[in-house]
């Protein structure tokens, strides 16, 4: 048994290895724990949920260990959700379903139970008993104005955003290329580092 103190003294590399070892989903991704995999590529894997909401309920996850979505780099998110689109399509094509619910929970407060970030793809049919309805709890103008201002401010911290609105680049293509330039990376990393405290705490609860 590894003590908490030992964990806190681990180097980032050791910690990553430790997490991988202790995470059943990392074991699944590595093929060391059997699962019904329906899709796999270099970066992600989709397996059937063993406690499904419906037939064909898939868990799509990056093979790399991330506890919550904010820790996942943008290029991994992009890839993951392009695969997600493909899997949703596959479900619509091959199973008798009429829709799909794509569901992510980040943090225990949001109902996350596994310590590995994952996307649920749930085949839906008319009048199934899955529930999962997003309730509407009333729109308050004053409060919304304040909340919108807070979110705009937080999103503005990103270099390329001005007053909550991304500065228009001449062509969409250029913008995509710019996003991949390594020069831009440090800005993102710094941002993540700053938030690491909160995220670590949220991730930590999941590991217990």
């Amino acid at each position: 048994m590894v003590t908490e103190e030992e964990v806190s003294q681990m180097s980032p590399e050791e910690l990553a290895a430790f997490q991988r070892q202790n995470c059943v989903f990392c074991q699944i991704a590595a093929g060391r724990v059997p699962a019904k995999a329906v899709y796999s590529d270099d970066d992600c894997i989709a397996v059937l949920d063993i406690n499904p909401a419906s037939k064909g309920h898939m868990l799509l996850m990056p093979k790399e260990h991330y506890s919550v979505m904010p820790q996942v780099p943008a290029h991994v998110i992009e890839h993951l959700f392009m695969v997600c689109k493909g899997l949703s399509q596959a479900a619509l094509k091959s199973l008798q379903c009429r829709g799909t619910t794509i569901f992510v929970a980040n943090g225990v407060a949001a109902g996350q139970r596994a310590p590995h970030f994952m996307v649920h793809v749930i085949p839906r049919s008319d009048n199934d008993s899955i529930g999962l309805v997003i309730p509407s709890r009333g729109f308050q103008k004053k409060q919304s104005e304040a909340v919108a201002a807070l979110l705009r401010k937080a999103l503005m911290k990103d270099k390329d955003v001005k007053e909550g609105i991304l500065v228009e680049k001449p062509a969409g293509v250029k913008e995509e290329k710019a996003a991949k330039k390594p020069g831009k990376k440090p800005a993102v990393d710094k941002k993540q580092e700053k938030k690491q405290f909160d995220l670590d705490e949220i991730a930590e609860v999941l590991n217990k």
């Binding site: 829709g99 794509i102 980040n106 109902g111």
Partner: peptide
């Protein structure tokens, strides 16, 4: 945006949900 919520709204979690098709709500 989900990441910004942790910071700006002091949320302790977020849900990201897509209802894809009428059957999904």
């Amino acid at each position: 945006i989900s990441t910004a919520m942790f910071e700006a709204l002091r949320s302790t979690g977020t849900n990201v949900i897509v209802e894809n098709g009428v059957s999904a709500g």
